[in-house]
Design a protein around this nucleic acid. Structure first.
Lengths: 243, 243
DNA sequence: GTCTATAACACGATAGAC
DNA sequence: GTCTATCGTGTTATAGAC
């Protein structure tokens, strides 16, 4: 092999399609797709603008730099999901009245918007890969974004779960909401056409393209997890472990 | 800003230290650290060999290419974890005898080796970031590796859980083992010095440096999840969702 | 607003001396 | 087994024409 960065080694995630709209919007949509496939670092402005049918100079015209483009992409796609989560949570709490909200309803408010919106929208599945990348390789742009965008929403969910399961300590709720998000991200990543790990692993038993199945299984698992007794007393002892 | 890829934007994960050993070993250790910080794509052989105190040509001498180097790095660090998991699972099943193994013991066999080994070893925390990257941005090298290395182990755990919780359908076990792994990866990523998301979010309530706490909370949550009734009958209906 | 052309630089790989 | 030097190709960013 001759020189060149080994980007051709990275397998596309999903059928990429040319975006529509004005130039700015086309660049945004194309950026989302290319970022998802090659990573923020591996994606090139050349490929993004080519997919958008725009000139490479357009990125510097509409956005200031590649980093600003990243921030805009995240914002455009994550904001509606957060809005939908909060809306669903509001409804939970309105229905609850005096007594605490229903645990499963709160979990659904957390999980369903991400499951459906991240997979229904055009190029939506790409979003999950973007968020996973933001965790695996945090940058200034992604770190500040997730902090500002996710944390206030998660705090509201922590409060709601506290009212739904009063026996659970606040510490345990924080741990478990992190676990819940991790479980959700894992399964949503899994259904990329590129990986399909679970579908393969299970010999086809699990249909990772079935949003309703994903949602049902996730909610059941997470609800079970939140209802588990706190480890409290004795922690699992550190077993001798081969190194 | 002038040209150049924006790698300086990526924030280091943890205190990087110069590796010891012979050249081959030093390159392997340095590669692990640099891959974890900058990603497989963003990492450069120049930085790796500089950290290893080796010449850039050493990579092509000891490993054939950057891709082969990636495969070797993953193998060296993941293999002991898989071995430890299987060893612990063997012990579970030996203790169980006729009746099914204890669910929590099986979960501990799955979780504890990753929690402790991925955080005890030198540069161990880097491994989690590598695995997360392998999911977020699968390459040929990482895809084949995870398939060959993780899948047989996971199958053994699926079988064991099936005996521990006979009421659970095989399909549900597959879904949930994926959720469990996701929850684990999420919390292990969180304790990078670079992110510390949960520690910040919880206002210090959760000590993400406390391996025993992580293990205890994880095992409790996952056990609760596996014991939850199958969603079976009616699935949560698709709520109207703002887009 | 959109384009071409190019500056300035980084990359992986490798040939060949020692 | 380790080094230097370099090739061929890629990148972002930008100046300046239209």
């Amino acid at each position: 092999m001759t020189a060149s960065r080994s980007r051709q080694n990275i397998v596309p995630a999903s059928g990429v399609q040319a975006p529509a709209g004005d130039t700015r919007e086309r660049v945004l949509t194309a950026a989302m797709q290319v970022f998802a496939e090659h990573g923020f670092d591996g994606a090139t402005l050349r490929e993004i603008t080519a997919l958008a049918g725009a000139n490479i100079a357009a990125v510097n015209y509409y956005f200031r730099s590649k980093d600003e483009l990243i921030r805009h992409v995240l914002d455009v796609y994550v904001r509606p999901i957060m809005a939908s989560r909060l809306e669903a949570l509001d409804e939970c709490e309105r229905l609850a009245g005096e007594r605490g909200p229903d645990l499963e309803a709160v979990i659904e408010a957390l999980v369903l918007p991400m499951v459906y919106l991240s997979r229904d929208r055009r190029g939506g599945r790409a979003l999950i890969r973007l968020l996973l990348q933001s965790r695996a390789l945090p940058r200034d742009a992604t770190r500040s974004f997730t902090h500002e965008t996710f944390d206030p929403v998660l705090h509201r969910f922590v409060d709601a779960i506290g009212r739904a399961v009063p026996a659970l300590s606040r510490e345990a709720i924080f741990w478990r909401i992190d676990f819940a998000v991790g479980a959700m991200m894992q399964i949503l990543t899994d259904s990329d056409s590129g990986s399909r790990r679970l579908a393969t692993l299970s010999g086809g038993l699990c249909d990772t393209d079935d949003n309703a199945a994903i949602a049902a299984q996730l909610v059941a698992f997470i609800a079970g997890g939140f209802q588990a007794p706190s480890p409290g007393g004795q922690r699992p002892k550190r077993r001798p472990v081969r190194g």
